[in-house]
Every structure is written in structure tokens, then in C-alpha cells.
């Protein structure tokens, strides 16, 4: 683990909302190796986006952040904004969920890309423009010279997300965080953008953190999967350990997410299984397992004590008092 690109230890993020403290992220630990793909899966409010923004230093001032996040050994938490800015956009880059809102509507896309270049390197206007057009080609945008001079509203959703990716890649980052990067796109475009991200990851040898609510996406693309619930990691394993032959999902919440994915083989006109109930109120978490109120297998011990995240099988951690049996799909 010494060669880790990003090492996050016991990351905690607390917001003060109306005088009450809200633990958005409650002690998460993970590692990203160079060139690897990590998927962080969870519902809205599970803390996946907040964790990554904490690492990037993009949370509002006044947010309490604890723990440690080291990028190639350099501690990122606690750096001054000016120091952190040197890493942001150069070593660490981020692609966001909604490309329609994440690009400045009054600025030509070319200028938004060259800005990412000139922020970190001295380059003449001409050089920056040439590099930006090169980046547009890299993300497979046709007629890159013309697109360079266009405004975001003149591009389609998928095209805008490609521009966002081009911007993120401007300084060849070592780690790219894709925060629900395909959620706002239609299904065909989603697949194209995911393929593009993976191709670029290979080409540029960078690590990728995929934040998503879509377990299917993680199963198809990730090397390692983290499932988050109510600010905590509830299951963590290599993708093969979860979805491969001989592997299995253990935590009940992950299982419920997996069952909620529609399958074509399923008989027509049957109800899709859903994860019942609603995500817990982060200001009033239950005393035991946070998922217990929604879990049909929950027993008294689940409601009394928080299960610890422990490595029960080599490489596979989960936090559950009554995990699914290996190989047995409990709903069948």
C-alpha cells in the first residue's frame, strides 16, 4: 500500500446546519492505486459526493473536515487554498453531474478549456488554443476547431460532458473524479461517455473514481467498489469479489441495490423490487445500523449496535450483523 496514489484515512466531514451538527461523512478509509478504477456507490445524501469534494477542497468554508487524504504522500486536508489550488486541476481533476450547469453559459468552451491550461502552466494564447483543440480531439469531438469557438448552449448534452472531460484532462491529472458524470445523460450517451472515460484512463494512465448511484455501472467498469450508506462505507470489495463467479454481495443494502436493477430476463409485468423506505435523516441517525429501519432482515441487535466494517473475507469488507450467504441469493 505504499505505492498508493490516493490514501484516504478516517475521513470525516461535518456540516453545521442550523446549530446542529450533521455528519455527512463518518470515518471512511480507502485507497486508490495508480491507474485503477474505484466506484463509490450510494443514494443521494450517502456522502459520496461530499467525500470527494472534501478531498478536492471544494466544500464551503466553515465545514469541519477531519482525518487524512494523501495524494502521493502529500497531505491534502488542511492545505491552504493557494497550496491546494496547485493540485486542483493539475494532479486531481473532477467531472460533474450536470454538464448543462457546470459550464459557464457566457463563456466560449475553448476559453473555458484554455483557462484550465493557463491556470497551471505558462503558455501563450496560441499554444493554449492548440492544446485545447488537441484536447477536444482527444475526447472525440468532431470539428474541434469550430467547437472551440462555440458556446455551451450550442452543444448537445453528451458533447458538453466531453468538453467537461477535456477541461479536466487539460493538465493530464493522475486522478480523475467523475461525480455522477453520466447521470444527466441519456442511456446511449452514458455508455459512450463511460467508454470514453475508460479509454482515456488507459491512454493517459490515470486513476478514476466513479461516483454513482448505479451499481450496474460499477459492476461493468470498476476494479474496486465501495458502497456508502449514511456517511459510512458499508461494503468494500474488488468488483470480482462482488459480481464475479464465486464472489457475492454480502451487505443487505448492497444486495437490495443489486436486486433493484431491472433485468431483461425478468418476466414482464412484474413489479420491480425497490429499496423500501427513505434514506435516513442525517441529523437523527438510528442508534444501531443506519440501514436497519429499511432492512427486512434486521433483528434486535441491528437496531442496538452499529456493525463495524471488517474484513471478513480477504479483500472483502462489510458492515452487517446478518450478511447474505455466499452464493445464495436470498430473494430467490
Amino acid at each position: 500500500m505504499t505505492d498508493a496514489l490516493l490514501q484516504v484515512d478516517d475521513l470525516r466531514v461535518t456540516f453545521a446546519v442550523g446549530g446542529r451538527e450533521v455528519r455527512a461523512v463518518d470515518g471512511i478509509t480507502f485507497t486508490v492505486s495508480p491507474g485503477a478504477t474505484l466506484a463509490i456507490i450510494g443514494e443521494s445524501g450517502s456522502g459520496k459526493t461530499v467525500s470527494c469534494r472534501a478531498i478536492m477542497g471544494l466544500l464551503p468554508t466553515g465545514t469541519a473536515i477531519g482525518g487524512s487524504a494523501r495524494l502521493r504522500g502529500t497531505e491534502l486536508l488542511g492545505l491552504s487554498d493557494a497550496e491546494l489550488r496547485r493540485h486542483r486541476g493539475s494532479d486531481l481533476a473532477m467531472v460533474f453531474q450536470d454538464p448543462a450547469r457546470s459550464l459557464n453559459p457566457t463563456m466560449r468552451v475553448g476559453l473555458q478549456i484554455t483557462e484550465a491550461i493557463t491556470t497551471h502552466r505558462t503558455a501563450s494564447k496560441r499554444e493554449a488554443q492548440a492544446q485545447a483543440i488537441e484536447l477536444l480531439r482527444l475526447v472525440r469531438i468532431p470539428a474541434a476547431e469550430r467547437r472551440f469557438h462555440e458556446y455551451p448552449h450550442q452543444l448537445s448534452g453528451g458533447m458538453r460532458q466531453r468538453v467537461m472531460i477535456a477541461m479536466a484532462l487539460a493538465c493530464r491529472p493522475k486522478l480523475l473524479i467523475a461525480d455522477e458524470a453520466t447521470t444527466a445523460l441519456d442511456v446511449t450517451t452514458q455508455a459512450q461517455i463511460m467508454e470514453l472515460l475508460l479509454e482515456l484512463q488507459e491512454e493517459l494512465d490515470m486513476a478514476l473514481i466513479m461516483i454513482s448511484h448505479d451499481l450496474g455501472l460499477a459492476a461493468s467498469y470498476a476494479d474496486e467498489v465501495i458502497v456508502m450508506y449514511a456517511g459510512k462505507i458499508v461494503e468494500q470489495a474488488p468488483a470480482a469479489g462482488l459480481f464475479g463467479a464465486g464472489g457475492a454481495v454480502r451487505m443487505r443494502y448492497t444486495r437490495a441495490l443489486l436486486d433493484a436493477i431491472p433485468h431483461l430476463e425478468r418476466p414482464a409485468h412484474t413489479l420491480l423490487p425497490v429499496v423500501g423506505g427513505r434514506p435516513p435523516d442525517p441529523t437523527a441517525l438510528p442508534p444501531g445500523c443506519s440501514f436497519a429501519p429499511r432492512c427486512q432482515y434486521a433483528e434486535d441487535d441491528c437496531r442496538a449496535k452499529v456493525p463495524a466494517l471488517a474484513e471478513h473475507v480477504p479483500g472483502h469488507r462489510w458492515a452487517c450483523w446478518h450478511p447474505c450467504e455466499n452464493g445464495a441469493a436470498p430473494h430467490d
Partner: peptide, 26 residues
């Protein structure tokens, strides 16, 4: 509130430039 402000910050653009180049015009 605006997402493109976060994008600009994520690029590493300095706060002053974010304010003047991105927020002011809008």
C-alpha cells in the same frame, strides 16, 4: 450556488479570477 463556479474552482482558478471572470458577467 452555481455549478460552473465549482467547475472553475476545481480547475484551480484563483478566487479573484473566479469572481471576476465567471461570476461577474453572469
Amino acid at each position: 450556488r452555481e455549478d460552473y463556479i465549482v467547475t472553475a474552482k476545481a480547475k484551480g482558478v484563483a478566487p479573484w479570477r473566479v469572481l471576476i471572470r465567471h461570476a461577474l458577467r453572469n
